[in-house]
């Protein structure tokens, strides 16, 4: 998803709508339809266009931020980092973010892959806590997040080698200064 709506796109859309309306009015006059029918026809055509381009309209609404959005964050962490994860999750929630964690959202009997896919599909950003090595679950979650183009915030909890996938992403160093790291994480996702 693009981060902003550029002026050219807006002008292009307005021009296309104006052209379409003019065409409909001309067509209505040619067919001898009255004003009522012409306006009704324009309304229906606009509706169809909005529906067909629902993906684009949705992106524009999101980018324009005309609706109150809570940022949704998917937090991926290994079991041995639960204590730190709890602190990060708490800080994110205090900042108004909606946080997805495996422990809270996946129940016995749930399909794990579907639940994780849904969680990542709903998320705006992805926080991955890195310990000595990336677990298989984390690798899977990271792969999905990258495939969906989410903003990824790596957080280093202990000395480790950054996975090659994340080599070009600026990470947050939690081990050096936890308080500063919490502020950086919150700032990055909200």
């Amino acid at each position: 998803m693009k981060n902003r709506i550029d002026a050219t796109s807006i002008v292009a859309v307005i021009a296309a709508i104006a052209s379409l309306m003019a065409t409909i009015v001309a067509l209505a006059q040619w067919l001898g339809l009255g004003t009522d029918l012409s306006v009704a026809l324009i309304t229906v055509v606009i509706t169809i266009i909005v529906g067909v381009f629902a993906n684009v309209v949705t992106d524009w609404i999101k980018i324009a931020k005309v609706l109150p959005f809570s940022r949704r964050v998917f937090v991926s962490y290994p079991h041995d980092a639960e204590e730190v994860a709890t602190k990060i999750i708490s800080a994110l929630r205090q900042a108004g973010a909606q946080v997805w964690t495996f422990k809270e959202r996946v129940r016995a009997g749930d399909n794990i892959q579907s639940a994780v896919q849904k969680g990542i599909a709903d998320a705006d950003s992805f926080v991955v806590l890195l310990t000595c090595s990336l677990s298989r679950n984390q690798q899977y979650e990271l792969g999905l997040a990258q495939a969906r183009g989410l903003k990824i915030i790596p957080v280093i909890l202990e000395p480790t080698e950054i996975p090659s996938d994340l080599a070009k992403v600026l990470y947050v160093d939690y081990q050096r200064n936890p308080e500063q790291a919490l502020r950086e994480i919150v700032k990055a996702v909200t």
Partner: peptide
């Protein structure tokens, strides 16, 4: 399971809905 088709799931019902109101 969660994603709608833009034409048959969104556009067509929306057009019919608006047409009904008209």
């Amino acid at each position: 399971d969660t994603e709608m088709d833009t034409v048959q799931g969104i556009a067509v019902p929306l057009a019919f809905g608006v047409l009904s109101l008209i």
